[in-house]
Design a protein around this nucleic acid. Structure first.
Lengths: 150, 150
DNA sequence: ACTCTTCCTACCAACTAAGTAGGATTACTG
DNA sequence: CAGTAATCCTACTTAGTTGGTAGGAAGAGT
C-alpha cells in the first residue's frame, strides 16, 4: 500500500479540524463557530498552504468538510468525528484503495495460469478496507492524547 | 495498495514457471530438466521480453529462481511452488509492502494530533502481509484450474 | 469601498515507472 | 575450436504522476 502525500495531508488536516472542533479553542484559529482557517491547519502540521488548499477542496466536494468564505471563514466537519472513517478520507482524495497497474482490482484482465491473482488482490482490498473503515477520526484523537502529548 | 506492472509481471512469470515445472510439458519451452525460457514466459502471458528479463534477474537475485545459460537454458523454481508465497515475490521486486510518502510506515514521523496515524498504517501493513504471506503459488495454480480453464 | 478568506485554474520541476537497445558472458554443439 | 543460443547486465528513452507554486476571481463580513 502506498500512501501519497495527498492522502497523508488530507488525514492530518481532517484530524486537526476535528481536534479544533471537539477540543475547544486549543490555540488554532477557530474562535466563533468552530471554523478553522486553512492557514492555521498548514501551520499546525507543517504542510504547504497552497497544496493543502487543493486537498481541502476535494474534501469539501466529497462532503466531508463544510467551508465558509470571508473574514471569519474557515473549515468544519460536516459530521461528528466519530462518524468519519479513515477510509472515507482516503477515498475522497485518492479514488480506490487497491489498483493493479493503475486499474481497479476488479478489471485486471488475467488469463491462463494467472487467473487466481485477481482473488488475491480482492482479498487484499478487503483486508485494507476492514482496517481503514473501522478506524474513525475520533478514535485516533483519543489514541493520540493517551499515548503522546503534542 | 498499488500493484506495479513490475510486481504483476513477476507474479505471472513465477506462476508460469511453476505451472511448467509441476504440470509437465504443457506446451512451453521446457523439455529437459523443466527449464523455461524467458521468451516462452513472455509469450505465454503477453509481457514485453526485455522488461521481463530485468524482473527475472531480480527474482534470481532474491533466491526464488534458478537460471541456466546456454542453448538449453532457462529458469526454474529453487523451491516447490507450495513453499513460495505471493509476499515473497512482491518483496523480491518491490521492497516493503506499505510506504507513506516513499518512506516505510515505521518512520513516518508524525507529531501532534496526527500521531495516531502511524498505528493505522502498521495495522494495514499487517493485514496485507497476512493475505499475501498465506497464499502460495501452488494454491493459486489449483484455484485457477478449478475455476477457469485457459 | 475595503479587507479577508475560500475557491479555482494553470503551470512547473522532479521523480518514478515502463519499456528499449545493445552488448558481455556462459554453455552447449558440431 | 569456431559458432550459436541463451542468460546476464548496463545504460538510455519516454511518458505519466506527484508534489508544489503562482495568481487571480468570487464571496462574506465590516
Amino acid at each position: 500500500m502506498y500512501v501519497s502525500a495527498r492522502s497523508d495531508y488530507a488525514l492530518r488536516a481532517m484530524l486537526a479540524v476535528a481536534a479544533a472542533s471537539t477540543g475547544g479553542a486549543g490555540g488554532y484559529g477557530g474562535d466563533g463557530a468552530g471554523l478553522v482557517k486553512a492557514a492555521a491547519l498548514a501551520e499546525a502540521q507543517g504542510m504547504p498552504l497552497s497544496f493543502l488548499q487543493g486537498i481541502l477542496l476535494d474534501l469539501r466536494r466529497a462532503g466531508l468538510l463544510h467551508s465558509h468564505r470571508g473574514t471569519e471563514g474557515g473549515y468544519a466537519l460536516t459530521r461528528p468525528a466519530a462518524e468519519i472513517s479513515v477510509g472515507d478520507v482516503l477515498r475522497a482524495v485518492g479514488g480506490s484503495l487497491t489498483s493493479v497497474r493503475g486499474l481497479p482490482a476488479q478489471d485486471a484482465g488475467y488469463h491462463g495460469v494467472a487467473s487466481g491473482l485477481q482473488d488475491v488482490w480482492l482479498a487484499v482490498d478487503g483486508a485494507i478496507a476492514l482496517v481503514v473503515d473501522r478506524t474513525t477520526l475520533a478514535e485516533l484523537l483519543v489514541r493520540e492524547s493517551g499515548t503522546a502529548t503534542a
